[in-house]
Computed example of a mutant assay.
Amino acid sequence: MSENQQKATSYWKENLKYLTILLSIWFIVSYGAGILLKDTLNSIKLGGFKLGFWFAQQGSIYVFVVLIFVYVRLMNKLDKKYGYDED
């Protein structure tokens, strides 16, 4: 295996690791907080709405948007680490 192939394989493995972690966080927030823990979270109010309802309707979307920005930052660092950045 050439050095470029090893570099590309390492890059892709790290990328998949980041994707797995970030999508797991999103799944836990959207499914866990919005569905599984909704009854527990509904005892807390946020802006006049029950917290379980808020996570099901808004929270998972906000978390997803934040995770997109985190992913962009992580990928920029990863690109620089492996020399794929365009700077």
Rank of each mutant, 00 (worst) to 15 (best):
Val66His: 02
Val70Gln: 03
Phe69Asp: 05
Leu51Thr: 08
Met75Glu: 12
Lys80Thr: 00
Asn76Gln: 11
Gly34Met: 10
Asp79Pro: 00
Tyr62Phe: 13
Tyr11Gln: 01
Leu74Asn: 03
Lys50His: 04
Tyr71Leu: 08
Gly59Lys: 05
Gly32Cys: 02
Tyr18Thr: 06
Gly52Phe: 04
Asp85Arg: 03
Leu23Trp: 08
Lys77Thr: 11
Asp87Phe: 07
Ser24Ala: 15
Lys81Glu: 02
Trp54Asp: 02
Ile35His: 12
Gln57Met: 12
Lys50Asp: 14
Glu86Ile: 11
Tyr84Asp: 00
Leu67Cys: 11
Thr40His: 06
Thr40Phe: 12
Val63His: 08
Gly47Ala: 05
Lys7Tyr: 02
Val65Trp: 11
Leu37Phe: 08
Asn42Gln: 02
Gln57Cys: 07
Asp79Cys: 05
Ile25His: 05
Tyr62Leu: 15
Gln6Asn: 13
Leu51Lys: 09
Gly52Asn: 12
Leu16Ala: 14
Arg73Ala: 15
Ser30His: 04
Gln57His: 08
Lys50Cys: 07
Tyr71Ile: 05
Lys81Asn: 03
Met75Ala: 01
Glu86Phe: 04
Ile61Val: 15
Leu67Val: 10
Gly47Asn: 03
Met1Trp: 07
Ser43Thr: 15
Leu51Arg: 07
Thr20Leu: 14
Ser24Cys: 07
Val70Ile: 14
Lys13Pro: 00
Val65Ala: 15
Tyr31Arg: 05
Ala8Tyr: 10
Leu78Lys: 04
Phe27Thr: 11
Ala33Met: 01
Ile28Ala: 12
Phe27Gly: 10
Gly48Cys: 06
Lys17Ile: 05
Gly32Phe: 04
Tyr82Phe: 13
Tyr31Phe: 09
Leu67Lys: 05
Tyr18Ile: 08
Val70Gly: 06
Phe55Ile: 03
Lys7Gln: 12
Lys50Ala: 15
Glu3Asp: 13
Leu23Tyr: 10
Gly34Asp: 03
Ile68Asn: 05
Val29Lys: 02
Asn42Phe: 05
Arg73Phe: 15
Thr40Gly: 06
Tyr82Ala: 01
Asp85Met: 03
Gly48His: 07
Thr9Arg: 11
Gln57Ala: 12
Thr40Asp: 10
Asp85Leu: 04
Val65Tyr: 14
Trp12Ile: 12
Gln57Val: 09
Ser24Arg: 06
Leu37Glu: 04
Ala56Pro: 01
Gln58Trp: 12
Gly83Gln: 07
Tyr84Gln: 03
Lys13Cys: 00
Phe27Pro: 01
Ile35Asp: 06
Ser60Ala: 12
Lys50Gly: 00
Lys45Arg: 10
Ser43Leu: 08
Trp26Leu: 04
Ala8Thr: 11
Val70Glu: 05
Tyr11His: 09
Lys13Asp: 01
Glu14Thr: 08
Ile28Trp: 02
Tyr62Ile: 13
Thr9Lys: 15
Ala56Trp: 08
Ala33Trp: 02
Ile21Pro: 00
Gly34Pro: 00
Lys7Asp: 02
Leu78Tyr: 02
Phe55Arg: 03
Glu86Cys: 03
Leu22Cys: 07
Tyr11Lys: 12
Leu16Val: 07
Trp26Met: 09
Leu22Tyr: 10
Phe49Gly: 03
Glu14Leu: 05
Asp39Tyr: 09
Ala33Leu: 15
